[in-house]
Design a protein around this nucleic acid. Structure first.
Lengths: 253, 253
DNA sequence: GCTATGACCTGACGTTACGTCAGGGTCAAG
DNA sequence: CTTGACCCTGACGTAACGTCAGGTCATAGC
């Protein structure tokens, strides 16, 4: 009943070399060897291999995968749930790309050309790494920055997804407030600004009102940040910026 | 109006190093440099960069991308069409994975375990890119291969579906013949082999009897091909292989 | 019983697509 | 005229394998 490397590889759609590689890394170890040293893969080994390939398909590095799978308090069902949600995210992204391409096809057919910003809309999307870089330039090696680095370093993909969802929810709430005609200096907008500040404090570093003011300034000064928010709704960057400033004023800072 | 590396990189969501890399490879070359040697990216350069990133997202290697983009008789719209269909394929695949995972979740919750075959169903599956790669290694830059590349590039989703259906019909006919006890070297099986050859010639490239023999050999030698057919029925790969060889003999080649 | 062929073994070096310094010019603001 | 962010070109590092090389093991045919 146990499988040889070749059969296991054929079944999983990978090469023998890949299985050798995973064996050496300790990522997928065959349960045993026969007397001539041949690897014997059991059903359980193949199940693990399947988990590895699923995560790999989703873009995880092999060492991340090892950490995920060897986490003692992650039950099989947890992995499946996580994989499903990651898959959904990925599908959503590809669907957005497909929509963007349709859009470009129409534009091309009508003979008009897109601006670079339009073109990269789906690519340039919210990428933590980019902002991190920005932050580094602005605040160099400030204590806030080091703390952020320290904390974000330990976040895994699932946590990043959660953080991203949080951030997005806040942004959309701002958009709604703006759409409802809520003034940026009103209580509702200020409450959202406060939520935004709490989000940063929870997830990145202790964000005081002064630092928050700095962020607000950057949102309108830097075209890259401005673009990020104005994609959601024109004028949103300025709206959020004003709300943050008003909120800091309200707090007396 | 022209962009510096940093701005271009931020816009596209890649690192500066990546742009340096693409520049050196000649994949995305900035239109020029200023007097101090700084790269200046024009809108056209960014359009090309976007094409590169789209194809990269779809899993193409950089040299493949270079060949695709530098193909003189591929118009922009062709690339977009191709990207769209590749995206659709990929989305379909991920959706299938998501379904498989749902399925596994149910199974896990009910406390029953899946066979390895069931588990890898979606992984081991027919992946054109994999075969293409294989074909390239086998026949290098043969005229047959280039012709296949040229012709398949223009197929859209509907055509691919039709081709796949054709191929499947032939495979199932083989399976039936085998189930009926028809000998692989008999007239019925040989006729199916001939149909198979015609299918390849119609859809991919001119497949002579000698090339067909080569395919037959690969069907049994390579576990990946073998698995593809043996999933339908055990021994089917060998059966088809024998039928093809017999048919080539019959034709006197 | 012999041999040929294909699957398996373990190194070990090659490859792709960048990441990450190192060492050194460039430019706008104060 | 200094400072800090941005740019340049090497050049070495890394991840995830691909690709030999050199040798063992199994089994089918003669």
């Amino acid at each position: 009943m146990p499988y040889t490397v070749g059969r296991a590889a054929a079944l999983a759609g990978v090469t023998v070399r890949t299985l050798h590689h995973y064996d050496r890394l300790g990522l997928v170890r065959p349960r045993g060897r026969d007397r001539s040293g041949y690897r014997r893969y059991t059903d359980g080994d193949l199940e693990r291999l399947h988990q590895v390939l699923s995560y790999r398909e989703l873009g995880f590095g092999l060492d991340d995968i090892a950490r995920l799978l060897d986490d003692p308090d992650a039950r099989p069902l947890d992995h499946l749930r996580r994989q499903r949600s990651l898959l959904e995210e990925r599908i959503a992204r590809l669907t957005a790309m497909a929509r963007a391409i349709e859009h470009m096809m129409e534009a091309t057919e009508m003979g008009l050309s897109l601006t670079p910003e339009e073109r990269f809309e789906v690519f340039g999307e919210h990428d933590p790494a980019k902002y991190e870089d920005e932050v580094q330039r602005k605040w160099g090696a400030s204590p806030a920055y080091s703390e952020s680095r320290r904390r974000t370093a330990s976040y895994d993909k699932a946590q990043w997804a959660a953080i991203k969802a949080e951030a997005e929810a806040i942004t959309l709430a701002f958009k709604d407030a703006m759409a409802r005609g809520e003034p940026a200096t009103g209580a509702a907008a200020m409450d959202l600004a406060e939520e935004h500040r709490a989000h940063i404090t929870r997830r990145y570093y202790d964000c005081g009102y002064d630092v928050h003011r700095g962020l607000a300034a950057m949102y309108v000064r830097d075209p890259r940040f401005t673009a990020t928010y104005d994609v959601v709704a024109p004028g949103l960057a300025a709206y959020i910026s004003a709300a943050i400033t008003a909120n800091a004023d309200r707090a007396g800072a």
